Amino acid sequence: MGMRLLKRFSTFTCLEKKVSPNSLKSKTKNVSSQHWLSRQLSDPYVEKAKLMNYRCRSAFKLLEIDDKYKILKPGQIVLDVGASPGSWSQVIAHKINSNGKNKELLTGTVIAIDKQNIYPIEGVTIFGNMDFTSEEVQKKLMEFLGERKVDIVASDMAPSATGIRDMDNENMLKLCYSVLRFSLQVTKNSGIILMKLWQCGDTKKLENDICRFYNNVKVVKPKSSRSDSTEIYLLGREFKGLRS
């Protein structure tokens, strides 16, 4: 029954069509780049990340979520999907003690994966330059885990934006369902899933699908997430396992 449930997700038809955006006009790109630079320069979290030695401001989103929901604990096994440049992995490594700096606590395991290269992080096993959505790459992750199950699958992954809203939303949802399908195979009972999503017409459908497998599902919008962004996070706790 479990495998049939997994296959049903792969038939999410509106996400299966291949999206290959045309190149955008250079003028649009320039305006977008200028807006991004201006926003970065005025963002207090960017400077705070530098001061605290985090690789980017996204670290504070995970820190906020963990402060409120207490999901990260010493000794856990955590998969960080879409990890580059590594700020979430930095937070996770400290929280679960995968770097072994606190000898009195259990030592956890962090596995970070991204299509881009990730520079080494103490206490983190890195799968860099690898596409998580690839079956071959997922097989490698499964082989690395062996008989072990994961406590948390955390995804801050997002597709490259095209500027075409419907296309971007479809690409984002496709990534989210890829994370969910893999999570169902590797997460231990009572485990957790945390994934980034852009609010769109299918947000509720994804939330409902997560509810089928996790007892407690919440929509989370950290304060450090920019107010003008449609970015939200779905947090599913208490994984029920694959059952009918």
Results as ranks from 00 to 15, higher is better:
K139G: 15
Q185K: 15
L24N: 11
Q116P: 04
K115T: 13
I164H: 10
P74M: 04
I121H: 00
W88P: 00
S32F: 14
I192V: 14
Q90M: 02
I192P: 04
K174R: 14
P159R: 08
R237T: 14
R237E: 15
S84K: 02
T107R: 14
G100C: 05
G236K: 03
P74E: 05
I152N: 07
F12N: 13
R243V: 12
Q138P: 07
L145C: 05
M1R: 09
L62E: 03
H35S: 13
T187I: 15
W36F: 12
G241M: 02
L62W: 03
P85F: 01
S42L: 09
G100V: 06
D202V: 08
P222Y: 02
Y233V: 00
V110P: 00
K27H: 13
W198M: 10
K48D: 05
I118S: 02
S160C: 10
C14E: 15
L41Q: 12
D156Q: 04
G82C: 00
K139S: 14
R243Q: 12
I210L: 05
S229R: 08
T162Q: 07
L24Y: 12
N30W: 10
K205Y: 13
N53H: 13
K27P: 00
I193K: 02
K25D: 15
D166T: 14
I118Y: 03
K61I: 08
S42K: 12
E147F: 07
V46H: 07
A154V: 13
V19P: 05
L197K: 04
K115V: 14
G100H: 09
C176Q: 04
M195H: 03
M167N: 08
E135T: 11
K139Y: 14
I164T: 07
V219C: 06
N216Y: 09
W198A: 06
E207S: 10
D168F: 00
D228W: 07
S229P: 06
G163A: 09
S33A: 15
